[in-house]
Design a protein around this nucleic acid. Structure first.
Length: 304
RNA sequence: GGUGCGAUGGCCGAGUGGCUAGGCACAGGUCUGCAAAACCUGCUACAGCGGUUCGAUUCCGCUUCGCACCU
């Protein structure tokens, strides 16, 4: 019986970098399963627009957190942390490795590092705050944050409604200042973590992204988006690829413009992802989606 | 050949004798439960050459280029 802790192999990289193919091949070779760290691939009915693993991927390797819930069943990063850890525990019962793949930096951190123990269900208070944001404006909420949590008020991005609202909702629901509860814990995970990052020359990546958008359109993204149109208000649909097509359906833009915007917004998203991953010094970078390089990194860390 | 109009940063586009519009693209960054979200920062250009002026992207002249009209 092997008493070494199991290893979670985490594949990261910007959208369009070829993570899915690489992860499936690695998981297949290791005889293990895949857990997604992509905040938009969780949902059903969004296969084309979020570039979910295809039939042959799903047939080759068992996947978790892919199209396993309705778009109305939001999975927050905190909830994901709990569910994903449970799922991993299950996988590690019978495997010494598991593969995580996806581009959502916050969810990757949730899985690998975890969050402070903050109130989990804040949706009611949030709804209230959102209404106040609209009626009273951001300044009023910033002022309230100052009275509830001066320390956080000092450091928070006061231009960013999302950050201000989040801090306030935690203060209100917990009855304690947000800053007091942020202790940046290093949760010890019962498994080793090996991060592999896919690095592409910018130009090449952008070309791949542009091309992939055209392929999505050819694969039926329009029909998929039309089916999702009634759900457009859901958070899950605040997603590149759908937002832009919805505007076309509304008549605000043309089809051509919408497609160009999808490409542009995908490029921007990729850039933000790269910014996020750049500061993670634990990532082992490989060129493009080179399988040999990836396997070399894996074999060095894992006994096969 | 003549006349008129125009020439603004990668692109679009306003404007002024001194006080560097703005937008988009692009780049850098932030990030503890909406994260494919939300937010921040950067990018100092006025076609070229002379002249007027304390000072010219802005006024004048010439040159080049573009557009329109005339012959």
């Amino acid at each position: 019986m092997n008493t070494n802790p199991p290893t979670l192999i985490v594949i990261v990289g910007p959208t369009g970098s070829g993570k899915t193919d690489l992860a499936v091949e690695i998981a297949r070779r290791l005889g293990t399963e895949i857990i997604s760290t992509d905040s938009r691939q969780f949902y059903r009915g969004m296969a084309i627009g979020t570039a979910q693993p295809e039939e042959h991927h799903l047939a080759a390797v068992r996947h978790h957190f892919v199209a396993d819930r309705l778009p109305s069943a939001d999975l927050s990063a905190g909830a994901y942390e709990r569910e994903a850890l449970e799922c991993l525990e299950e996988i590690f019962r019978t495997h010494t490795t598991a593969v995580a793949v996806g581009g959502s930096g916050l969810y990757i951190d949730a899985l690998c590092r975890g969050f402070d123990d903050l109130p989990s269900d804040t949706s009611e208070v949030r709804a209230l705050l959102m209404r106040r944001l609209e009626e009273e404006g951001l300044d009023a909420l910033v002022e309230e944050l100052r009275t509830r949590d001066e320390a956080h008020w000092q450091v928070v991005d006061r231009n960013n409604p999302a950050r201000v609202v989040r801090a306030l909702e935690v203060c209100i629901v917990s009855g304690r200042p947000y800053s007091e509860q942020r202790t940046a814990p290093q949760h010890q995970r019962p498994f080793n973590i090996l991060k592999i990052g896919l690095q592409w020359p910018r130009e090449e990546l952008y070309e791949r992204i542009n091309r992939r958008v055209d392929l999505m359109m050819a694969a039926g993204l329009e029909a998929e988006a039309r089916a999702l149109y009634p759900l457009r208000h859901l958070n899950a649909l605040q997603t590149v690829g759908y937002k832009e097509l919805f505007e076309w359906f509304d008549g605000t833009t043309s089809r051509e413009e919408a497609v160009e915007l999808i490409k542009r917004n995908s490029r921007r998203y990729a850039k933000r992802q790269m910014t996020w991953f750049r500061r993670d010094e634990s990532i082992h970078w490989i060129e493009r989606n080179d399988l040999a390089q990836a396997m070399a990194v894996v074999e060095k860390a894992v006994e096969i």
